[in-house]
């Protein structure tokens, strides 16, 4: 008992002094669960997030756009991989994590349940969805769990081209024909609010938020992050000559930030619950990849075993 108290004290001290918690260090069970849940959810989001954009690789309008989009989505696969690895340091292997996603016991970001309907959506996703993700991820570079923090540092380095890739698409559309510009505005209209929802419910309604902050797993609250994203995105929209679909959006001189309207939380919770436009398709696609890949993974395992046995025989 007293030993547990000592360990708790060491842990608390580390959190206080900004010393990272490493996989084999003692940590409270609740901390382990919290970090693991967050990393797994983040990993699933990266991987499911490949699907809406993947929908446009075959139809990318130029060779330059095609390779950029492909490289961008490839990075997201890498991000999923880094984050699963970080989660695995806490003792749950990737296969188990993936099963939890497929069984519906683990969540992923609600944004990826929205469809990518036009080429402009690829621009909007890179600009807004990656933009919002980056705001969150920059904060997470300083998370208290070592492997999560290191994964975030690597991811942020790679992310740097994603948002630019999306914004450049938007810029090209906005400098193009009326039809192209309308396509861009339509994409912004559809992706603006769901992007704001990416930061999660307001801190006062978010069950994990306060504890995550206390443990320094998260370094900023959902509301502050969301505000930061809005403040930096408005002038980017202005530069494009596009209108953010929020009539209440207005600069507040006193606060030094934008005032803005109301998120439709009913929509948010419905999408989380599985009622979004693409929830079923997204999970079905991941399930199919998992099922159709089983015999391939098994074959490679079997081959590795045979090869090792052959090697042993030779050595004997």
């Amino acid at each position: 008992m007293s030993e547990e108290k000592d360990l708790q004290a060491i842990f608390d001290k580390k959190i206080e002094n900004e010393v990272k918690i490493e996989p084999k260090d003692w940590m409270p069970d609740a901390y382990r669960k919290n970090v693991l849940r967050q990393m797994a959810q983040h990993a699933h989001s990266e991987v499911v997030g490949m699907l809406p954009e993947g929908n446009w690789i075959a139809r990318a309008p130029s060779m330059r756009r095609k390779v950029a989009l492909l490289a961008k989505i490839q990075d997201e696969a890498g991000h999923g991989l880094y984050l699963y690895s970080a989660a695995e340091t806490l003792g749950k292997d990737r296969d188990t994590l993936v099963r939890e996603l497929l069984e519906g016991t683990a969540k992923y970001s609600s944004i990826f349940n929205y469809p990518a309907l036009t080429w402009a959506d690829i621009g909007a996703v890179g600009w807004l969805v990656d933009g919002a993700a980056i705001v969150n991820q920059i904060m997470l570079q300083k998370t208290s769990y070592g492997p999560y923090s290191r994964a975030m540092i690597r991811i942020c380095k790679e992310e740097s081209f994603h948002q630019r890739q999306g914004y450049e698409i938007m810029l090209t559309l906005c400098r193009g024909t009326d039809e192209q510009k309308a396509m861009a505005q339509d994409a912004l209209n559809r992706f603006w609010w769901p992007s704001l929802m990416m930061f999660g419910p307001s801190d006062k309604d978010s069950p994990h938020s306060a504890q995550s902050m206390a443990w320094k797993v998260k370094r900023m609250g959902n509301d502050d992050l969301r505000q930061k994203f809005i403040d930096q995105t408005v002038k980017q929209a202005d530069f494009l000559g596009l209108t953010i679909p929020d009539p209440e959006l207005k600069w507040n001189e006193e606060k030094g930030q934008y005032d803005w309207g109301q998120i439709d939380w009913e929509e948010f919770f419905n999408v989380i619950k599985g009622n979004g436009p693409c929830n079923k398709e997204r999970l079905a696609a991941r399930q199919a990849a998992y099922d159709n890949g089983a015999w391939v993974r098994e074959a490679a395992t079997a081959y590795a075993k045979k090869k090792a046995e052959r090697k042993d025989k030779e050595a004997a």
Partner: peptide
């Protein structure tokens, strides 16, 4: 590139896309 997001394992997605990118 059609394998992107649908491969048998994440590592394979990344590897196949590398080949696709080389070819493109």
């Amino acid at each position: 590139s059609e394998w992107c997001g649908h491969g048998p394992e994440l590592e394979e997605d990344i590897a196949v896309i590398n080949t696709a990118l080389d070819l493109l």
